[in-house]
Write a protein that binds this DNA or RNA. Sequence first.
DNA 1: CGTTGGCCCTGATCGC
DNA 2: TGCGATCAGGGCCAAC
Length: 315
Amino acid sequence: MPELPEVEVVRRGLAPAVAGARIERVTVLDARSLKRHDGPAEDFIERLSGAHLAAVVRRGKFLWMPLAVGETGGMASAGRGAFGDPVEALVAHLGMSGQVLLRRRDAEVAPLTRLIFDVAHPEHGALRVDFVDQRIFGSMAIDPLQATPDAAAGGHGSTLPLVPGQVAHIARDPLDPAFDEARLLATLRARRTGIKRALLDQTLISGIGNIYADESLWAARLHYDQPTGSLSTRTVRELLGEVRTVLRRALDEGGTSFDAQYVNVNGASGYFSHSLRAYGQHGMPCERCGRLIVREQFMNRGSHFCPVCQRRRPA
DNA sequence: CGTTGGCCCTGATCGC
DNA sequence: TGCGATCAGGGCCAAC
């Protein structure tokens, strides 16, 4: 399940190969992978063919590649954008099972490949970018870029203060220098919901999915359904610190991988799964106290926690 | 508006 | 051996 670290690994792998590359051909094997695209597959293909990708940017679990505006392509006629600020981007979300694979042009097409981009890079030559997605919760789309309200960079990977419309409602992630911690603190105080639900709410804080939510809550010794309004500012800050630590550590280890659901752009698996303390550890002893980790259903997901270390605290 | 529950989607795995 | 049931969950949207 690609979350922030896995998506960042993809971004880092993809950026050198596609920034500055020209899309020569687009093949749509399954139009369901374009469900976020506002238009038919033909429109997607036509608008991307010949386009240049300027960068690979990430906010939370979303990736986007701004389409470069050059002398031959839709030059803005007035205003600040006249010198090539991109106006739209190729947006990607990996969903549950999405992968972006960087391949040689003649490489075999993997099963469950939904989209294929033949690209040409000035240094790296002819390459292929394959979008593989078993469960089709992920998708790609062309989406207009808009200004960020805080004028900070839209995401990691570009300094431009632009963000796709589809991503505008997604909060900045906790590794973003412009992350609004005060806003999160205020919202958590006012909300009447559990802390894990809040951690998974991408409009409050982005990039966290089920795995890193469970890992962060274990590290902070918090129960998943602890009411957010009962948490002190200090406790929330500590939790946020654990979130950042867990995300950074996973990033250092190349992301989490399970039965090859996730592979990075070269097809190699990440290995954060060796470092999990809570997620998937039900039946195993807690590393702090030895009590067996349990798994409960919550929000149609599994929640893994230590019944001793992570007791619900009184309000 | 805040909050919550349900739905989408399919390959792998399991049990009978 | 074959086949149906079960499982995984991010994002979005209807409904209260």
